[in-house]
Structure formats: structure tokens, C-alpha cells
Design a protein around this nucleic acid. Sequence first.
DNA 1: TTGGTTACCGTTAGCGTTTACGAAACACTG
DNA 2: CAGTGTTTCGTAAACGCTAACGGTAACCAA
Lengths: 338, 338
Amino acid sequence: MVVRLKDIAAELGVSVVTVSRALRDRPDIAEETKAKILDRVKRLNYRPNLTARSLVTGRSSLIGLVVPDLIHPFFAEIAKGLSAKLREKDYFLIVSSSESDPQLEQDEIEHMLAHHLDCFVVASCQKEPDSLRKFGDAGVPLVLIDRSFPRFPCHFVGVDDYEVGELATEHLIAQGCKRIAHIRGPVTNVGNRRAEGYRAALEKHGMGAPENYVVACGEASDSDGETRGRRAMEEILALKPRPDGIFCFNDTVAVGAMDQAFEAGLKIPKHIAIVGCGNFHYSSKLQVPLTSVDQRSREIGERTAKMIMTLLEKPPSARPRTVILKPELIARESSRIK
Amino acid sequence: MVVRLKDIAAELGVSVVTVSRALRDRPDIAEETKAKILDRVKRLNYRPNLTARSLVTGRSSLIGLVVPDLIHPFFAEIAKGLSAKLREKDYFLIVSSSESDPQLEQDEIEHMLAHHLDCFVVASCQKEPDSLRKFGDAGVPLVLIDRSFPRFPCHFVGVDDYEVGELATEHLIAQGCKRIAHIRGPVTNVGNRRAEGYRAALEKHGMGAPENYVVACGEASDSDGETRGRRAMEEILALKPRPDGIFCFNDTVAVGAMDQAFEAGLKIPKHIAIVGCGNFHYSSKLQVPLTSVDQRSREIGERTAKMIMTLLEKPPSARPRTVILKPELIARESSRIK
DNA sequence: TTGGTTACCGTTAGCGTTTACGAAACACTG
DNA sequence: CAGTGTTTCGTAAACGCTAACGGTAACCAA
């Protein structure tokens, strides 16, 4: 049924190795025989069994991608950019969604390791990086994206989240906001750094913010981000004096926050200015187009692909490689106070 | 470095096969030895090499998914539902985005076939199904989703697109629209069936529509769907008398169409009612919340996973299995005429 | 001629696992 | 006690491919 190397070899009266050589474009084969073989290969519609090849070469041409949520535009963009670049080098992407569940993430990674993938790309939802050390043990390169860990040196591609918080807050200040609140994300490096950037920007302008101006909304990257945004906004709207500007952890949360504000009869940006993060492709289409900090998801995917290639081509270097992209603020209606 | 069956066998003084039996929970092994082996397996953190297993069993536990666009919420949802269900049975998903390019789709499928996946799930952008016949030749089950082909019997999961067109159009009629136009999608089964449903609904109510009320916008599933929607809307707005209701091929196109209407100074739904298709998760958050026909993407993913399981467990049956889901209209502001 | 190089191709031995088969030990039957 | 069945294990072969090595023939320089 399915054609093997052996079949082609038998038909042409050559050895299996010779056919293999022709297919992999090896130098030690005569042009004439090579042509003959390739012709037959094409006519028989032969496809090399990559599983078998993988077993002997130890390379599978498969890359693992584990993200918290595949629907989330940020990760979907990354997956797309990554997949597109990898395709050029004949690599495939195996994806898995951890649903922001650290245990599930661990299980999936453990399972993926059994498939002997060439490299892993993980946007990890772990609190501590301990479980990620198994990659080192297994000798498989790991590239973290979006989220890194302090004191865990590892290849990384993402934006500087401190800068994200700073950028958003500076913008609100420039728009004339006096009382700027923050709906912060989970207690992870990302959440912490954005909050730090937010505080730093305020202090730089001699503004500061009371403790209760920072409201946590939990694991905001999953699908109920909107609900979390609504709940956080409820708290914020109860504050006195009411904040006049909010930096939201991401656009999903911002959408929920805006909904809640509308229900309370408030106008955006007149009463409250909103800045989100992620610049999802629908953020410009919202009822009130949302100002957002772009996280360069497409570039993250592409740069990650590039990093993987150098990682796989060159001998494993001890030094972790890092690509930090500059976030970019896209100003829209939701923060246009003037 | 990496532990093999052989290593465990050597440490315990048993044969490789015995260890293999313990791991796969085979009956012909003593409980005592099995416990001893499993204990050692756990302590050494052994992971079976699934590549090697795959080579001999002929099953890889990998499923291929090829869709036109990974960012597209419809396909992203499908990927998520599929991946979640497959995980329960220890299957992984290899994804690829064809970018709505038939040639690219063919190449990717061809390449994927070399990896000896257990099953393929394809939302094909081919005009003709000829290139899909290779699955039959290769003996790999194929499940088409979202898009099927007339006169090409194949496993299929999706909604009835004729019904989609009918449902959307009936709704516009019920809302009191008198001149209903259609921004149609590509000349594929999906595009054709929706247009047929649209025409049928009109005729059923004795309305009909002039030829130029149907405007094509091309391959609308890719990322520039909005631009295509705008261009199509331009044509429609030039018609006299101007249509008062439009059924758009999908929500992305509808967004573009609405933008164009806004720019022309029109109000939605007052001057023109809009119905989209797909019910993307942002459609309810738009400037004017969009009425849309839900395509049950999550269910498609899950039902596809279920179908794959029966396909892989049971002997290959000749009869193609088909799951046709009922589309559901979600009424929102964009068509609320009263 | 001899020795050395090069071009080309085959033989052998795996890669890590599973399947098929057989053997040993033991218990049970008549 | 021979014969039969059952339980538990090992040996050998295979899955389809590639890496490593060896061998042959042809050609060239000394």
C-alpha cells in the first residue's frame, strides 16, 4: 500500500542506502543514478517516513507550543507567526492549551516530552519555574514567551512588561488624568512588572496612588476575562473620589470594565479614560474604540521561530538568549480626553 | 541522559519486553514484577519514546488540523475544542494554517502525511476535492469540517450552510426589511449554499432580489475580510433603491460593511439592518452589537474529536459519517428595527 | 609498476519499541 | 504419572530509516 525506501530500491536494483542518499541530496552518489531514483520516487509518490527518520536521527522536526488559551488573540497571533516561519524550514507545530491551569500545563508538557520534540515554546502559567527545569534534564531547548521568571535564566521572547505599565500610565497622565487606577493581572512576573511600571510612572510625575487604586482581577488571560474586568470595575467605581483613568491588565479585562462603566451610566472617556493592553484586532471596533498597548504578538511569533532555528542549528550554548521587544501604545477614543 | 526501556530492564535484571508489558498494562505479567518495574520507572522518571512506539505500532497519537486561518475566531474555537477533547485520550494536535491558499494547503497536507498522523481534520480551501483523494490512497482517515464538497463523500462535521442563509434572511424579513442584499463569500460549497438559502428564503416570501443585490467579496475568511466587506458595501450603497437589510457572509465582512456604512453617514439598523455569520466573541462588543448566525464552532471541535475516536477505534467503515449541526441566530442591535 | 586518491555504492548495525512465538515452571486432571 | 492447561517470562524479528564503515573500480602521479 504505502511505498517504502525498500520498494524503490528493489525496483531499481540498487541498495536502500543509495535511494536514501538520493533523497537527502548527499554528495556521494552519481548524478545519473540520483536522477533515475528521484524520477521513480516521484512516479511512485513516495513519502519518507519521518517517524523512522526521527528515530535514528534523534530529530523530529516538531516544535511544541503550550499557551494558556488558543482563542486568545494574543496567543493565536503568536501561534500563527510561529507556524508560518517554521513551515519554511519544514517544521510543524504541536499545540496545546493549558487553560491557565498549572497542573494541566505540567501534564501536557510531560506528555509532549515523550514525543521527543525538537524544541518547546511555552507561555507558562506556573507560579514558580521549578517544573520547567525538566527541559534541561531532558536536553530539550525551551523558549519562554510572554512570561519569564526572575532568577530562572532561560531563552525568552517578549515585551518588557515594566515598560508596558509605564507607557500606559504616562499616556493617561499626558491626557490629563489626575486619579489613575490599575486593574492588575495575576501575581506573576507579568502582572507584577506592569504594576511596577504603573507605580513608577505615577511617582515620576509626583502623583502616587492610594493602595486601593490597584484592584486585582486574578487570572485574566482566560476566557472569562470580561467578567473579571466587570467585577474589578465595580470596586473601582465605588472608590471616592472616583478615579478618572484606568490602566487595565489587558483588552479583555478592559472590555468588561467598560461594560460595567456603561451600566453605571458613565461615559468613556469623558468620565473615565481607559487603556488596555494587547491591542487585540477587535479593540479598534469596540463601541468605544479602545486605546491599547500593543504587545507585538506577530513579531514575538516570528522572532521565536528565528531563535529556535539558531538554537537547533548551533551547538547548545549555555548562555540564554533574550529578545525584548518595545511595546507600542495605540491611542484611540477610550482615552481621548483633550 | 535519557532513560530507555533497556536501562530499566538492566537495572532490574529482567528483559525489555517485560518492562514494556508492565508499562502497557498487559495481562501476562506477575503483579509483583509489575509493581517493582513501575516503581523503578517512576523513580527514574522514564518516558516512553513515542516515536519508536509509533514506528512499530503504526499509530502516532497525532492528529493533523489544517485550517485557512488560525487567528480567525471560528477556527481558533474549533482548534481549542478539538484539542481539549483529544487530550483526554492522549492525542496531540498538529496545526497548520493554509492562509486560504489551495497550493499551500496541498503542500502542508503532503508534508503532514509524511509524519504518519493518525487522522486529518481539514477545513479545505480547495475549489475541487481532487487533491483530497490522496488520503484514501494513503489509508489515513480524513474528516472535513465547515466545508464539504458535493459529489465527494467524506466524513464531515459542520452546520448546514443552506440553513444559515435561510435563517439570516428570514430574520431580516421578520424585522420588516423589504430590500435584502447579500454580501456573498467565495465560490465554494459554503458560499454557494448560503447564497442559495438566502434566495430560497426570499422566494418563499415572494420577495426575490435583483441580480445585483448579491455582491461577491471573494475569499472572506482571511485576515483582510474587513477590507473586502468595505468594498462590497461600497457597491451596495450605490444601488438604487438602496437595500435596507444585508446578510453578510461572516462577521468580519459585516464589520467592514458597517464601517463603510458609518462613513457614508448611515445609521445601523435605522437605515440598514445587518446580519453576519459566525458569532465571533467580539461581535456583541461592537459599536453596534452585531446580529449573527452562530456556527457552533465549539461543538464542531468537540464532535469532530468524538468522530475521530470512533473512526480510530472501529475498523475503517466505508460509509462516511456526517454530523450536521443546526445554526442558531443571535439577534442583537444591528438588526433591531422594530 | 606501485601507491594513493577519489567517486560511488553496498553491508552492517543500530535507533527504542512492540509483536509473535516459544519455553519453563507450575498446577490440575484423569 | 503422563497429559493438558495456565501463568510468566525471554528470544528473535521487525518497523523504516540513517550513520559508519568498507570495498571496488577508475584515475593519476611518481
